[in-house]
Design a binder for these strands. Structure first.
Length: 496
RNA sequence: GGCGCCAUAGCCAAGCGGUAAGGCAGAGGUCUGCAAAACCUCCACCCCCGGUUCAAAUCCGGGUGGCGCCUCCA
């Protein structure tokens, strides 16, 4: 059994082999901190969080680097609009990023470097690239010369000639008008470039922009160079995994690859991994369509773990369609799992018992089989469903105290093992269940005090064996979307 | 115009040559004062047409229909 990973570069699933035995060095492109994170970011970082967790479970010594890009055009624009210093804006968004990620169970990376803390390394790399003849200076800018790298566009599988042909075609796109062409001619904004695909390694500062001294005058890094510089600093010139969203394949990763090659003469990444996009109601998520959701907004309406569960229901490379209904479904599953875990823990507290190692080992092997197949979280979720069912099955076993406790302990351990990899079922059941209930009440515009009053009335009716009245109250609550569960230890209720 | 991805039950979604995981919904059942929850059972031959093979949802060719990237973007 071996781990297989899909490599964007070779377009195939390959047996995973590390450069150094037992060690994985991975770099995932982090966020540009000009705004709050959206659910697309959630998908990417949940995907790589699971990958990182699984690699560690597999016994690899993982070094995970995920950067913050804290200087770029959008940040400068946003800071000017808001009238706040760049550093204030970026600091604030980094804090927000950590809040969002913590909420959805994404662990911090081992190293989270900021671009502005690595300007000397970036300048040094640009110098090296210039010295090796793969870049040129023009008016305080430094551009990468794409024609100097024979392997350019190999990652994205394009051809230089096609790219140029495409640019002309796109300029005539339907939404273009003479006043505002769909595509700004590249030469208009960066007239000093020799080739349209050449890209800036270093940008001369315009008045009022953040700037650092350099051999080419005051300026700042271009978009792609930071990842080449920081990855090599923390992971070495060559490392195992490099990930990010599909959209980064071109130009970002293509350009990173070119720069790193130009600086070292080496292919710097062994395996390229890219996650698919989040669509909203089957359309691409975008601010102009009004279907743009931040993580913060979504987790106010749905429990953060529901979002995480939802994101794991589809393989990380496929597109996933975000709809309220899909997240609600996920939330119901999360609720089911935590109710089950809660009951199991209560039972094991009364009757402590060890699990059956033969069965838990077999379960681990099934998990490994699923996850070894390019981190197939959707297939792994089928195992979660199986563990949940086994657990409930054991919980409802009649008699046989010890036998029952062992069955419960065994199934609970299976669920725990799976949850540890997927980042599910790791929280306090009470809190999660309460969090889900509050959100469901809010979504349905229900008043908790009112419901609790009706539930109390019904309990009284049942005690008096006034079944007719009890049923009327049940119907009333049912009409509100509240379901009642009468059990030996009382009546519980929840929002459907 | 170039490059690429996808098409599996009412819905979502695994599957990567050996005879269709899982979830939701639905039907029946156990349990229950009635219910709910939970559990059990049932529920598809994989967009179309050719081809390769003993064997194809899975490979190849051709259609049809979605989508993405080529521009800031996870």
């Amino acid at each position: 059994m071996s781990l297989k990973v899909y490599n964007t570069f070779t377009r195939t699933k390959e047996p995973f082999e590390t450069i150094d035995p037992g060690k994985v060095r991975m770099y995932v492109c982090g966020v540009t901190v000009y705004d709050r994170c959206h659910i697309g970011h959630a998908r990417a970082y949940v995907a790589f969080d699971v990958i990182q967790r699984y690699l560690r479970w597999r016994g690899y010594d993982v070094t995970y680097v995920r950067n913050f890009t804290d200087v770029d055009d959008k940040i400068i624009k946003r800071s000017n609009e808001a009238g706040v210093p760049v550093s204030e804006l970026t600091d604030k968004n980094i804090v927000a990023f950590h809040e969002d990620m913590e909420a959805i169970g994404v662990a911090r990376a081992d190293i989270e470097p900021r671009v502005t803390d690595h300007i000397p390394q970036i300048v040094a790399m640009v110098q090296t690239i210039l010295q090796r003849g793969h870049a040129y200076e023009a008016g305080g800018d430094v551009y990468f010369d794409v024609t100097s790298f024979p392997g350019y566009l190999q990652l994205s599988g394009r051809k230089l000639d096609d790219m140029q042909a495409g640019a002309g075609e796109r300029a005539g796109a339907p939404d273009a008008t003479p006043e505002s062409p769909a595509v700004v001619p590249i030469d208009a904004t960066e007239p000093l470039k020799r080739h349209p695909l050449d890209f800036a390694l270093w940008k001369a500062a315009k008045p009022g922009e953040p700037a650092w001294d350099s051999p080419w005058g005051p300026g700042r890094p271009g978009w792609h160079i930071e990842c080449s510089a920081m990855s090599s600093q923390y992971l070495g010139e060559v490392f195992d995994l490099h990930g990010g969203g599909m959209d980064l394949i071109f130009p970002h990763h293509e350009n990173e690859r070119a720069q790193s090659w130009a600086a070292t003469g080496k292919e710097f990444v062994h395996t390229w991994m890219h996650n698919g996009f989040v669509n909203v109601d089957s359309e691409k998520m975008s601010k102009s369509l009004g279907n743009f959701f931040t993580i913060k907004d979504v987790i106010a309406r749905f429990h953060p773990e529901s979002l995480r569960y939802f994101l794991l229901t589809t393989h990380y490379r496929s597109p996933i369609n975000f709809t309220d209904g899909a997240v609600e479904d996920a939330e119901n599953r999360v609720e089911y799992l935590y109710e089950t875990v809660q009951a199991a823990r209560a039972l094991l507290e009364r009757t402590p018992c060890d699990s059956n190692p033969i069965e838990t080992e077999a379960a681990k092997e099934r998990m490994q089989l699923a996850m070894d197949d390019d981190f197939n979280s959707a297939a792994t979720l089928a195992l979660v469903a199986d563990a949940g069912r086994r657990l409930n099955d054991a919980l409802t076993m009649k008699g046989k105290g010890i036998q029952k406790a062992e069955a419960v302990a065994t199934a609970l351990e299976m669920l725990d093992d799976l949850g540890a990899i997927l980042g599910l079922c790791q929280r306090d059941p009470e809190e999660v269940l309460a969090g889900i209930r509050e959100r469901k009440l809010a979504r349905n515009g229900l008043d908790r005090a009112l419901i609790e009053g009706l539930v109390a009335d019904r309990i009284a009716a049942r005690v008096a064996k006034d079944w007719a009245k009890a049923d009327v109250l049940r119907a009333e609550l049912s009409g509100m979307g509240v379901v009642l569960m009468d059990g030996p230890e009382g009546t519980r209720w929840k929002v459907a």
